[in-house]
Structures are given as structure tokens and as C-alpha cells.
Measured scan of single mutants.
Amino acid sequence: KMTIRVKGKELARRIAKEMKDRNLKVEIHEHGDEVILEIE
């Protein structure tokens, strides 16, 4: 399990899509400006 902190929703969406393309499970937690992606 891996956690990534990202500034900006646009970048977070791009990373999430990339991870889904690799068949990984992604959970997205938004905290205002910061987005936390949990990847399994």
C-alpha cells in the first residue's frame, strides 16, 4: 500500500487514471488544496 500527497486536483486525477490503467486500486481523499491518493 502506497500513499501519495499531491497539490492540485488536476494532477491527482491524472495520477489516479494512470494507476487505474495499471489495474491498481486507488482511493482519493481530498483535503482542500491537497489530495491524498492511497494506492493498493
Rank of each mutant, 00 (worst) to 15 (best):
1 K>H: 13
1 K>A: 10
1 K>D: 08
2 M>P: 06
2 M>D: 10
2 M>C: 15
2 M>G: 10
2 M>Y: 05
3 T>K: 10
3 T>I: 15
3 T>D: 05
3 T>M: 09
4 I>P: 04
4 I>V: 09
5 R>P: 06
5 R>N: 09
5 R>L: 11
6 V>A: 03
6 V>L: 07
7 K>T: 08
7 K>A: 09
7 K>W: 05
8 G>Y: 07
8 G>P: 08
8 G>D: 15
8 G>Q: 05
9 K>W: 10
10 E>K: 07
10 E>D: 13
11 L>G: 04
11 L>H: 08
11 L>V: 10
12 A>R: 00
12 A>F: 00
13 R>F: 07
13 R>V: 13
13 R>G: 11
14 R>P: 03
14 R>A: 13
14 R>N: 09
14 R>G: 05
14 R>L: 12
14 R>Y: 04
14 R>H: 11
15 I>N: 00
15 I>R: 00
15 I>F: 04
15 I>V: 05
15 I>L: 11
16 A>T: 05
18 E>A: 13
18 E>R: 11
19 M>S: 02
19 M>C: 11
19 M>D: 01
19 M>T: 02
20 K>A: 12
20 K>V: 10
21 D>Y: 02
21 D>M: 04
22 R>L: 11
22 R>C: 15
22 R>G: 03
23 N>G: 15
23 N>F: 09
24 L>Y: 13
24 L>G: 02
25 K>H: 12
25 K>P: 03
25 K>A: 08
25 K>R: 12
26 V>Y: 04
26 V>K: 01
26 V>Q: 01
27 E>I: 15
27 E>S: 13
27 E>L: 11
27 E>C: 14
28 I>P: 01
28 I>E: 03
29 H>V: 11
30 E>N: 08
30 E>Y: 15
30 E>R: 08
31 H>S: 12
31 H>Y: 14
31 H>I: 14
32 G>H: 03
32 G>I: 05
32 G>W: 05
32 G>F: 07
32 G>P: 05
32 G>A: 06
32 G>T: 03
33 D>G: 10
33 D>F: 07
34 E>D: 10
34 E>W: 15
34 E>I: 15
34 E>N: 09
34 E>P: 02
35 V>C: 12
35 V>Y: 15
35 V>H: 05
35 V>T: 09
36 I>N: 02
36 I>A: 02
36 I>P: 01
37 L>K: 01
37 L>D: 00
37 L>C: 03
37 L>W: 01
38 E>T: 14
38 E>W: 11
38 E>P: 00
38 E>Y: 14
38 E>Q: 10
38 E>G: 03
39 I>P: 00
39 I>Y: 04
39 I>L: 04
40 E>D: 10
40 E>I: 13
40 E>L: 12
40 E>R: 11
